[in-house]
């Protein structure tokens, strides 16, 4: 127990040191006048945070909820498509190509189009967040469902297992690790997608992205940097939340 805690502390200490060194270096560079005016120092960002965290939170809440719903929608659609491809392998190329196309659309340009179609609001932010996180989840699902050990596949063949049994009892459990990897890779994308949608006016005046753009265009350097910092923190946080949740699930599904 203590050994485990110690190991945990050691594992965490390296990244903490790196972050501390970066922040320290940044602050020092700022004081030495090495950075342009458009870059706020960590101290300034902190002061801004203590003054306007109410504002920040009011804008962050819709962003986070859009990111969550977008992520969930993307995951559900990707799971369904992954299963469709598992049942009908001939569709593999079609689904892949369409997914690459969707993932390649510039989200900044897509937002105004969606606004015209869906009206401003949460639906646009959620859609963009879903599109931004969709691709890694889909790839994780499709590749995971294909990643079956040869002898296990032969076992199911010797036993004349119907396709649905093979998918349910072999392919889905085998797909868990890569699907989890895809979900983790997509977590930050959902947050950034929601911010992009807000930035380009998809969500109205509320949202972290909207706050960021209004701060930027009114030359409020500390507030701009506070929103940038918040975006980073939320993206990293999303990654860790997904990691914790999927860790629970995959331990239950395949303790092996």
């Amino acid at each position: 127990m203590t050994a485990k805690a110690l190991r945990r502390m050691r594992d965490l200490s390296a990244p903490c040191l790196v972050i501390a060194a970066l922040v320290g270096g940044w602050e020092a560079a700022h004081r030495a006048g090495l950075l342009p005016n458009s870059v706020a120092s960590p101290a300034q960002i902190w002061t801004e945070f203590t003054e306007s965290y109410h504002l920040l939170w009011r804008h962050a809440r819709p962003t986070l909820s859009s990111a969550v719903w977008g992520f969930v929608a993307a995951a559900l659609i990707a799971f369904v498509l992954g299963l469709v491809v598992a049942f009908v392998p001939e569709l593999n190329r079609t689904v892949y190509t369409s997914a690459v196309l969707v993932a390649s659309v510039p989200l900044i340009a897509l937002t105004p189009i969606l606004v015209l179609w869906l009206q401003r609001g949460a639906q646009v932010r959620i859609t963009i967040a879903a599109i931004a996180s969709f691709f890694p989840i889909l790839i994780g699902c499709i590749e995971g469902l294909r990643q079956v050990r040869r002898d296990q596949a032969e076992l199911f063949e010797v036993l004349s297992a119907p396709r649905w049994q093979r998918i349910l009892r072999l392919q889905i459990p085998s797909a868990v690790p890569l699907t989890v990897a895809g979900l983790r890779a997509a977590a930050a994308g959902a947050v950034l997608g929601a911010i992009i949608a807000e930035w380009s006016g998809g969500g109205g005046a509320l949202g972290l992205g909207a706050l960021m753009s209004s701060a930027l265009f009114s030359f409020n350097v500390p507030l701009t940097w506070l929103t940038i910092t918040a975006a980073v923190v939320f993206s990293v946080g999303a990654y860790f939340v997904v990691m914790a949740l999927t860790g629970l699930v995959s331990r239950r599904v395949r303790s092996g």
Binding site: R149, D151, Q152, E154, L155, V158, L159, S160, R169, L170, P173, V253, R254, S255, G256
Partner: peptide
């Protein structure tokens, strides 16, 4: 008819 039994080299058990 599932009348064939096969034992694989690497046991091929399902770990989950």
């Amino acid at each position: 008819q599932r009348r064939i039994g096969f034992v694989f080299q690497e046991h091929a058990l399902l770990p989950w």
